[in-house]
Computed example of a mutant assay.
Amino acid sequence: MNTPRLRADAAENRARIVEVARAAVASSDELKLNAIAKQAGVGQGTLYRHFPTREDLLAEVYRHDVEELVAAAPALLVEHDPVTALAHWFDRVADYARVKRGVFAAVEVGVWQDLSARSLGPIGDAMTALLDAGKAAGAIRPDIDARDVILLIGYLTRLDEEEWDTRARHLLHVVLDGLRSRE
Rank of each mutant, 00 (worst) to 15 (best):
A106Q: 14
R54V: 05
L57T: 07
V18M: 11
V25K: 07
L172K: 10
G45P: 07
D160T: 13
A126T: 01
I36M: 08
Q113T: 03
H80R: 11
W164P: 00
A133C: 01
V70K: 12
N34D: 13
A37G: 06
V107S: 00
A97L: 02
I144D: 05
A26L: 10
F104P: 03
V103A: 02
E108T: 15
H80N: 12
D81N: 09
I150K: 03
V42L: 01
L179Q: 04
L171Y: 11
R101F: 01
A94E: 09
L6F: 13
G134Y: 02
D65H: 14
R180S: 11
A136H: 06
P122S: 07
K38V: 11
R101K: 15
R49K: 12
A59T: 15
G124P: 00
S116E: 05
V99W: 07
E163A: 12
D114T: 15
P142K: 06
G45T: 15
E162T: 10
E55L: 05
E30W: 01
E161G: 00
Y48E: 04
P52N: 00
A126I: 00
V20Q: 10
D114P: 00
L176E: 09
R180T: 12
A26S: 10
L6I: 12
D65P: 07
D95T: 06
R7G: 14
R98L: 14
L120Y: 04
A15C: 10
V66S: 06
A10W: 03
I153R: 12
W164V: 00
A40Q: 08
V103M: 03
S27E: 15
I140C: 08
W89R: 12
T128A: 14
R63P: 05
P142I: 05
Q113M: 10
L159F: 13
M127G: 03
G41V: 13
R98M: 10
R14G: 10
G102K: 08
A37Y: 08
V107N: 02
A10L: 13
A21S: 04
L172W: 07
R7N: 11
W164R: 05
Y48C: 02
E30D: 12
L33K: 01
G124S: 15
V25I: 09
R118Q: 13
P52I: 00
R101H: 04
P82Y: 02
D56E: 15
D9H: 04
R169Y: 06
A10P: 01
E162K: 10
P74L: 04
P52R: 01
V25E: 11
Q44M: 10
L131D: 02
M1V: 09
S119E: 09
